[in-house]
Nucleic acid binder design. Structure first.
Length: 612
RNA sequence: GGAGCGGUAGUUAAGUUGGUUAUAACGCCGGCCUGUCACGCCGGAGGCCGCGGGUUCAAGUCCCGUCCGCUCCGCCA
């Protein structure tokens, strides 16, 4: 321990001192944010995670302190003892030849700006090399450097603020769920491998040659087993692992607030979760949310917004102009419709900011979704001008389209004709793109909604095969149970997502707890009994012993933290994130391992196989 | 698997039609300065132009390959 800390204990953080503290003897510790050397007087900005305080080394006060202060450099870690003083008024330096004037010395940019600490003792705990980038917000340094020196990046106030808020989120979550009778129970990370769904990271078993664990994609099955075991209310703030391609909002390991409840229906569960969300917003952000949150059926979301996670901060909605297009006389689009495609349109009310350049840019934008976008401008009397569709649509189709879109003179209609999935995805993205370009998204709103009644199964476009949209234990709506056998694609699920500002922040479902219904679900999915047993035998067995009705949800903690902190990148709410290729630039991981290690695990690396 | 953008001093960027010694700002180092808080003033150092190959009398610049980072589609709940 340093001599300093054996005789002194920190009295305040660097963000704590105010005018009322003037005259106090204080002990501060922190890092040198910056220093301004004026010869006989040196000003030092001392920073810790709580803020910045100006401390002053003055030669006429204590010469030895001034001598040490003269050597200080950015990011040295120091401790000081000193006296809090009001900054008051001082004579400014003034320009040469100009008279010096009395000037107020308060720094209004920082909360501690009314005071400063005159140093009586100063100890350097450790020196620092010049950091590769300045430790301050609003620096513009590329991600490679930031990630390599992550421990320095994490010193920046903004990242510290983000991680502090993330900690508040998890603490409030534990408080809320704890007081509502939820038990925090851990489940295994190393689990049985089951093909299908997301790719798994694998962990070789030394004790079982040739066999592997999988890292859990989520604790889904275990939390259901906890319901069977009678724990009634479970939660866990838990890491999940998925070996899929990465994105800004996707890390290979991410954190879920995982929850499961027995003896509930959708309403009971959602109300409980709304309470959690409202408590988080109140305790962490100081914002009162209006409950209950809005609900919207999947079908309506797809129809009006083209996505299952509508951003309701933007009022523009889509409409369907498939019918007028069918007989429009425009051959190319007619053929899209006659082969089963749809035409979705976005009406953009007259807006000077919607320039020709933006409209022309839509072609490339749509291309990245595998679609082509067209646009026309509506003139007086419903006439069209602009792209080729303006000339090729016949009068009747034009009028019918105008009517469906409620188009007014000066409006622009943008549309895409394609297979339903592509048309919706593309127009959904165009809606947001245009909203962003025109500044129509109300950035300061919190627009929550429950997305309800999604399809239970997804039909693969290419193969026509049916797959579980959620997971195979999601319950169908009671009214749709008869459809399970003949028309599974039409069955809707007792599932729900919580959507915030166009981001899916959570999702869950009421589970199947009756084995007869589960058997029919597996049958619809064409999972044979052998397969069922091999993959989920233990769960099916467990369900023979009096399973309670139950359901649950999982929230993406990283996404919630991103939205609540206002972070633009998921990396900014995770202490040690990975890059888009899943590597950690600080530790330089992943790496090859020794031959000996591999042999012990009965693994042979095959560099001869193609990597792509 | 695919599309796009980027990599030049510690950092962020500029670098023309291929042409002399590769610029600038901030940072860094030395000196001066009692009121700064983006302190100021004087002086100085600092480069594998991501890496490999090619074209050329000549490549930061053109071509091919490759590595790394970012954004997006597919994929992923």
């Amino acid at each position: 321990m340093s001599a300093f800390l054996s005789t002194h204990t920190r009295t305040h953080s660097c963000g704590a001192l105010r005018a009322g503290d003037a005259g106090k003897k204080v002990v501060l510790t922190g890092w040198v944010q910056s220093y301004r050397d004026h010869g006989e007087r040196i000003f030092i900005d001392l920073r810790d995670r709580d803020g910045v305080t100006q401390v002053v080394a003055d030669k006429s006060r204590i010469a030895a302190v001034h001598t040490i202060a003269d050597t200080l450099r950015a990011e040295w870690c120091i401790g000081i003892v000193g006296e809090v003083r009001m900054r008051g008024e001082q004579l400014s330096r003034g320009e040469p030849g100009e008279e010096r004037k009395l000037k107020k010395m308060t720094n209004e940019k920082i909360p501690t700006g009314e005071v400063e600490v005159w140093i009586d003792e100063l100890e350097v705990f450790s020196e620092a090399e010049t950091p590769p980038f300045a430790i301050e917000d609003n620096i513009d340094t590329n991600d490679t450097v930031r990630l390599k020196y992550r421990y320095l990046d994490l010193r920046r106030p903004r990242l510290q603020k983000n991680l502090v808020m993330r900690s508040q989120i998890t603490r409030t979550t534990r408080d809320y769920l704890g007081t509502h009778g939820f038990l925090e129970i851990e489940t295994p990370f190393m689990v049985k491998y089951t093909p299908g769904g997301a790719r798994n990271f694998l962990v070789p078993s030394r004790l079982n040659p040739g066999n592997f664990y999988a890292l859990a994609e989520s604790p889904q099955i275990f939390k259901q087993l906890l319901m069977v075991a009678g724990y009634e209310r479970y939660f866990q703030i838990v890491r999940c692992f998925r070996d899929e391609d990465l994105r800004n909002e996707r890390q290979p390991e991410f954190t879920q607030i995982d929850i499961e409840m027995s003896f509930v229906n959708e309403q009971i569960l959602q109300t409980m979760m709304e309470g959690l969300i409202a408590t988080l917003w109140k305790d962490v952000l100081g914002i009162e949310l209006k409950l209950p949150l809005r609900r919207m059926a999947y079908a309506e979301a797809m129809d009006k917004y083209g996505v299952d996670k509508p951003d309701l901060r933007l009022d523009l909605t889509l409409c369907d102009i498939t019918e007028p297009t069918r007989t429009s006389g425009y051959g190319i689009l007619e053929s899209v419709v006659s082969s089963g495609g749809i035409v979705k349109a976005l009406r953009v009310p007259k807006d000077e900011k919607l320039t020709r350049a933006i409209l022309d840019g839509l072609a490339d934008f749509a291309k990245s979704f595998g679609a082509q976008a067209a646009w026309i401008k509506v003139g007086d009397g419903g006439a069209w001008s602009g792209g080729p569709a303006a000339k090729n649509f016949n009068e009747a189709a034009r009028q019918q389209t105008n009517q469906i879109a409620k188009a007014q003179p000066g409006d622009v209609l943008i549309f895409v004709a394609n297979k339903a999935k592509i048309a919706n995805t593309t127009m959904g993205a165009i809606r947001l793109h245009i909203g962003e370009k025109l500044g129509l998204i109300r950035k300061h709103e919190w627009q929550f909604m429950w997305l309800t009644d999604p399809p239970l199964f997804e039909v693969d476009d290419a193969t026509g095969e049916i797959a579980a949209a959620h997971h195979p234990f999601t319950s169908p709506r009671t009214a749709d149970e008869p459809l399970l056998d003949e028309a599974p694609a039409k069955v809707l699920a007792r599932a729900y997502d919580l959507v915030l500002n166009g981001v899916e922040v959570g999702g869950g479902s009421i589970r199947i707890h009756r084995s007869d219904l589960q058997a029919r679900a597996f049958k619809a999915l064409r999972i044979s009994e052998d397969d069922q047993r091999a993959k989920f035998g233990f769960l099916l067995d467990a369900f023979k012993y009096g399973p309670p009705p139950h359901g649950g949800i999982a929230f993406g903690l990283d996404r919630l933290a991103m939205l609540m902190t206002g972070a633009e990148f998921m990396r900014d709410v995770i202490a040690f994130p990975k890059t888009q290729r899943g590597s950690d630039l600080m530790t330089e991981c992943p790496t090859a391992v020794s031959k000996k290690q591999l042999e012990e695990l009965f693994i042979q690396v095959r560099p001869d196989l193609p990597t792509k």
